[in-house]
């Protein structure tokens, strides 16, 4: 790849093949997808933290589709693709649920943690995605939500 440094010749072996899944949009479907993704990622010989972060971000992205895009409908499906691209792993999710409000990705700000009675029990998902990904894009394409998340694979990552 163009920006692989000469001194770090042994880039992560992400030469594993891309993985495509078509899952049912339920928490159990998400679990099954994550198990398949973990198998694929373990063949890519990544460091455990990098692999763990990819699994976490994929989980958060899938949970969002189940809980929001398909919150009012049953039987929805999600097409998931994990595609190694040199220095990053592309995660692509396609679903036919409701579009993002205003066709815009949530900012994912972490709310201040004050007192124990008023602690937030949710709203961490987009924060984690944005914190760990190098790039996140969303578009609506003929009734389909297309979410693309690029996760760092190597040592030139965001200091995670």
């Amino acid at each position: 790849m163009a920006f692989r440094s000469g001194t770090d010749a042994r880039a992560p072996d992400a030469a594993c093949e891309a993985l495509s899944l078509d899952i049912v949009a339920t928490p159990q479907g998400v679990r099954a997808a994550l198990a398949r993704a973990a198998g694929m990622l373990s063949r890519a010989d990544l460091c455990p933290t990098v692999q763990g972060c990819i699994e976490l971000v994929l989980a958060e992205a899938l949970n969002n589709v189940v809980e929001h895009a398909y919150s009012t409908s049953e039987g929805g499906r999600i097409a998931v693709r994990l595609d190694p691209r040199g220095e990053t792993m592309l995660l692509e999710l396609r679903d036919n649920g409701r579009p993002m409000p205003d066709l815009t990705l949530p900012e994912g700000q972490l709310r201040p943690l004050v007192g124990s009675g008023d602690l937030p029990e949710g709203g961490f998902g987009w924060y984690l995605i944005r914190r760990l990904a190098v790039r996140v894009t969303y578009r609506r394409e003929a009734g389909t939500n297309v979410l693309q998340i690029e996760m760092p694979l190597g040592r030139q990552s965001k200091g995670i």
């Binding site: 933290t49 699994e55 958060e60 124990s116 009675g117 602690l119 937030p120 029990e121 949710g122 709203g123």
Partner: peptide, 30 residues
């Protein structure tokens, strides 16, 4: 653990009485 699991632990803490403390042990790296 994902953010739903994190939220569940936060909810458990919030369900406790004032004066009770919840500490977490044995956390794996992720």
């Amino acid at each position: 653990i994902d953010s739903s699991g994190l939220g569940a632990i936060v909810a458990a803490k919030k369900s406790m009485a004032p004066g009770q403390q919840l500490d977490l042990a044995g956390l794996m790296p992720m």
